[in-house]
Amino acid sequence: MERGFFSNVELRTPSGRFYYSLAVLFLLLVAIITLFPFFFAFTSGLKGSTEIFAGGLNMLPQVPQWQNYVEAWQRFDMARLFGNSFVIVGVGVFLRLTISAAAAFSLSKLKPIAGQFITYGFLLTLMIPPIAYFVPLYMTISKLPLLDISLLNTYWGLWLPYSVDAFSIFVLKTFFDRIPVDLTDSARVDGANPLQMLIHIIMPLSRSILVVLAVLAFVGLWKDFLLPYLVLTDPRSQPITVRLFYLADDYSVNLQMAASFIALLPPLVIAIMLQREMKIGLTLGGVKG
């Protein structure tokens, strides 16, 4: 039977019950504090613009102003901002996974000469703090070497740097390594080329880990601030995180809160709906060091 440091018998004794209730209360209190900013943004978004600054502790709005949410949606042009974010993040996740899966497949199954060396090269980027090469990265984006093209104010300026992810390559390679060589060998004998092997054998077997990495990439890229902030200076193309932060100051606090709450919904919905994948992904992240 399931037990922890408390045995099930002990939990039925008065002192066991007491400590257990204490633990539940403590965890509930932490849960309330954790959820408080979400709740606070939601209810503050429902308040009137003077009510929100009325002193005293009044958590709930006197009369919920639902039109604040409509107004925030329109004034911040949130449909467009969400659209931008989804395009940036969607293509970013797709590119990152495609490029990482192809590289991991090659390293795991096609045995390139110097593959080990290249793997170390990929992993090296996990040890260098990203902020430490952010300046030359920005200069590269503003003027690509050899091609002399500027990617500033284009989504490629985000998509291409976003596809650099040694962590995905590493996780996928580890996963592919566990797929028996017999499977790929017999496919090769049957005349399958590597691309067919990847699409028809490797990918279907790795669907679970690909979803985990996609969820992780989605949340990570949706949160990104500094790169889109510097690369996209045109307000019409900015993602919601960047634009909302800079617009916020121009509007009353209740509208800011309403807009913030709306902006939180997509990642929250994804995290709740795909919580199993999130859980696996986040614990994967813990062992990468």
Partner: peptide, 17 residues
């Protein structure tokens, strides 16, 4: 799930709140 929800919140939005 409650404890990890803040993980997915973009910092720029969390800061406004």
């Amino acid at each position: 799930i409650v404890y990890f929800l803040p993980t997915v919140v973009p910092i720029a939005i969390a800061v406004i709140i």
